[in-house]
Amino acid sequence: MNVFDRAYDDTIRVLDEDGEVVGDVPDLDDESLVDMYRHMRLARHFDGRAVSLQRQGRMGTYPPLSGQEGAQIGSAFALDDDDWMVPSYREHGAALVHGLPLKQTLLYWMGHEDGNNAP
């Protein structure tokens, strides 16, 4: 069965109507949760600053990630070290988790030549 054959009632849920977890809670230690939270806060802070630069005309374009931090950071943390991650339009939070410096992201969106030289 492919994804297009799935019935609409096969929806995967992680929270119920009251915000309670459906199923098992992931086994994450406090240090991992704090690390994920720090990455989400940093991604949102960077996002706010980059949006400001774009609105000032100091950056030609910028795709904000606001509201997507949890999905990006959480999914990036779920990857193994040897898994591939190819960042796309609004995925600089996930790229940050895997070691892409925010400076590199900034250079890329500002159109600087060095922004294409990812480490």
Results as ranks from 00 to 15, higher is better:
56 Q>V: 01
51 V>T: 12
108 Y>E: 03
38 R>K: 13
56 Q>E: 15
16 D>I: 03
44 R>K: 07
103 K>C: 00
49 R>E: 15
89 Y>V: 05
46 F>N: 05
80 D>I: 00
20 E>Q: 14
72 Q>D: 08
48 G>P: 01
101 P>G: 09
64 P>S: 11
57 G>F: 02
105 T>F: 11
75 S>G: 07
8 Y>C: 11
4 F>H: 13
105 T>I: 15
117 N>C: 02
75 S>A: 09
104 Q>F: 00
104 Q>C: 06
27 D>R: 10
82 D>R: 09
47 D>Q: 11
101 P>T: 08
41 R>L: 14
64 P>W: 01
16 D>E: 04
89 Y>W: 09
99 G>R: 06
59 M>V: 08
7 A>S: 15
70 G>Y: 02
5 D>F: 08
87 P>F: 03
81 D>I: 07
25 V>G: 00
65 L>G: 15
113 E>T: 13
43 A>T: 14
45 H>L: 11
41 R>K: 12
89 Y>K: 00
5 D>R: 12
5 D>G: 02
87 P>V: 00
55 R>M: 08
89 Y>I: 08
94 A>T: 01
20 E>D: 12
69 E>G: 08
22 V>E: 08
32 S>M: 11
33 L>Y: 01
108 Y>F: 15
102 L>C: 07
62 Y>T: 02
88 S>R: 15
22 V>G: 03
48 G>E: 11
40 M>C: 09
58 R>A: 10
52 S>I: 01
22 V>N: 02
1 M>R: 12
21 V>L: 13
32 S>N: 03
97 V>A: 08
81 D>A: 15
53 L>S: 03
101 P>A: 13
